[in-house]
Nucleic acid binder design. Sequence first.
RNA 1: GGCCCCGUCAUCUAACGGUUAGGAUACUGCCCUUUCAAGGCAGCGAUACGGGUUCGAAUCCCGUCGGGGUCACCA
Length: 534
Amino acid sequence: MTKPARVRVAPSPTGDPHVGTAYMALFNKAMADTTGGKFVLRIEDTDRARYVADSEAQIFEALAWLSLNPDEGPEGHGGPGGPFGPYRQSERLPLYKEAADRLVKEGKAYRCFCTSDRLDTLRKIQQAEKSKFIGYDGLCRGLSKEDVAANIAAGKPHVVRLKLRQDNEIQTSDLFRGQINFIGAEQQDPVLLKTDLFPTYHLAMAVDDHAMGITHVIRAEEWIPSLPIHFELYRAFGWDAPVFAHMPLLRNKDKSKISKRKNPTSLLWYRDAGFLPEALKNFLGLMGFSLPNDQEFFSYAEFLQHFELTKVNIGGPIFDLQKLHWLNGEYIRKLSDAELEARLVEYVQHLMHREREFADLPEDQLPQETFLRDFEQKRRRWSRTLGGLAPELMTSFEVNPALLKPIMPLIRERLHTLCEAADYLPMFFTNRFEYTREMFVPKKQTPEGAVAALKAARDIITAADFNDPTLKEQLDNEFRTKAEAMGQKIGPFLGPLRVALTGSTVSPPLVESAMVLGKEETLHRVENALKFLG
RNA sequence: GGCCCCGUCAUCUAACGGUUAGGAUACUGCCCUUUCAAGGCAGCGAUACGGGUUCGAAUCCCGUCGGGGUCACCA
């Protein structure tokens, strides 16, 4: 067993909680839990321009939904607090200022008075000249003490930049990839402290990770290019650097970094779409990691039993919603009737109380990839259906808590996501169907045959005793016998009855559904249909 | 474009330097079937390419190609 690791996930509250945050949270938490360490949540709210007020609360909620709660983190929203707080960077501003000042005093950083305009122009010129080096030219490095003092006296705004070594190789390392070297001269002096006295990511990360005793920085691969900054920062401060481990980036189907346009990225979306948190977590655990013996299903506890950070596969995995869809179906099938019912009730309540359609892109911005687009369109339709059904369902449910129980076995194996219940649930709560004549006439069936079959079915149901324990077998047999007598196949024979009872050509098993509806309601629906067919 | 990372079926992945390169999703076919599912069986399908090292390479080395990330007073 290795030493207890202190790890963290550090999202910035700039929008919907991101699936990548959950991915990092999972592996960080696993690292903490397998070493007896601590998993810290730090809110990186240093960009006041992109700050979104309720984002932090949603991050908490999303992590809680996935049971990826931090051991330490900001207080509020049920956050745990902890001995290394505050855990919001906006509440730690003096620390960064102090750290930056220290580096300036020691000559390891300097004040830069260059304007954004100058920087933009500089960059444009470099790009126009096809310069290999694109970035800050270090103009203010050479400013004398007097110049700096004069500029400050004149009230010129400034930033603090780290004086990066420009001569030799900057050696960095990554747990998975080993040593990674960068040429100092190819790096630009990064901004540490912004004009508004907020730190940039680099400064805040180094100061906080050091102050919070972080031992392993497990973060996304996109940070590798800033490794020289981070190593040089630690060196400038004279601190030991933590172990850096850069996880592969989750990808879109086209292998680019996962993005909202091409894939759902919001955890709220996954919840809205009816994915189970344990399925999503399992799926995320499959990204870049595998358990022995081809084990694909695992609880978090099982994940921990086999988790080893060094076993991570660093090839960037494509986030395949289709496989998640399958996996989620497997998880749903494992739920007991009572559990599935509870999940559905919770889910429907969630839909009912939510204030907006989360992650709702305009139609023309839906993902191009067929499966994703179809899935999102269905999701919206399902969502609307269930949303509309919700008040009625919840009321009936409160009146009769046993209501859903008999339905669960009929729909469980038909669901991949909870929202797909919209295909099967409404028929048990309403008989106002919008069917068409065509729906009553399946393939290998005629309009006359359909009416005849429906009437025959009505007679059989009328004669049936719904209290008889062998009702199902009886109805099965009688339908079959009658169909045969009428020269019809059982499928086309029952088609019209299916539409009459369920309002759809697709439904849970018919006889069982009729039994849930009861004799009176079943006959009522058949009569309605016959009336409709004239 | 510079720098950096990565490269096993379409996708997620397995394989002490020795396997007919395994499993799963998806897809296809058959079976089951009262629609839709679920389930069962089967099929399709990969070591990017070229050089080395080695008795032997998916595995080690080099090159090429391909993909990705990054080049902000965003994280």
